[in-house]
Amino acid sequence: MTTLPIETSTESTMIESGSHLSGVSSVIAFARREFRDAISSRWFILYTVAFTVLAVAVSFMSLAGSGSHGFAGFSRTTAGLLNLIMLVVPLMALIAGAGSIAGERERGTLLYLLAQPISRVELLLGKYIGLAIALCCSMCIGFGLSAGVLAWRVGGVGISAFVMLVIFTCGLALAMLSVGMLLSVMSRRSGVATGLGLFAWLILVFLSDLGLMAGTILFKLRVQEVFAIGVMNPLQAFKMAVIVNMNASLDVLGPVGMYASQTFGGALPWILALVLGVWTAVPLLIALVIFSKRGSV
């Protein structure tokens, strides 16, 4: 993606009559460019293939020997997919986000992009939207094949829970992409940004949970404290959201889950969705502020 996408095409659908593009259409233009860059890049294809293969493999393996007990097999599949999603999707989204601005900056192409008659906000939003759509499409391929395996092996059991799984996974990807973008606008070099992205992945996926585990044991935290701290992690919020949609209760997650289910009841899925929403909106807003204030390229 080092070459500039200046094409000598006769098509000019994207160009407005005036010399300055309107806000929305320039965002769309950048989103489309970002999408094209993403789906033709090697890392993206690699992640997509890896996610798809793993998703299908998990579906097959958790259904092995399940016979005709449809919904039982379904929840096993979802439990298996959860672990896979929580490992791969944040990695994919964080790295994609981290590489976006810092990569352009390092290659010098950011200079060219900023030379276009658009604002920095529009540029960042366009990049965000393009990458988000690319990520969601990539996951839809994995989920689509996985759903195909489920349909083949156990029929149409648990379809609404599966729909929610897909939706929340996309939500998780958007949140992680936001964080990645924030890291990207803060870094001068793409290597630094990718490193920060990996570090963020390590913190969110492993270190924060392990830390909270240690804290729970050492300080004998009460259920409400464990829940309040745990739910701040977007990955835990995502996991709880998927499970609460699948089982209508968090009782499988022990005392803390029961506390959450009984305290918040029907509002719980919305609270969890809100957590993902905040993790999407806040880092993106900070990234927008930093990026638009930054004088240099």
Partner: peptide, 11 residues
Amino acid sequence: PNLRIFLHSPA
């Protein structure tokens, strides 16, 4: 038992 909240997670 409170640690059960971390079931199904990479941790």
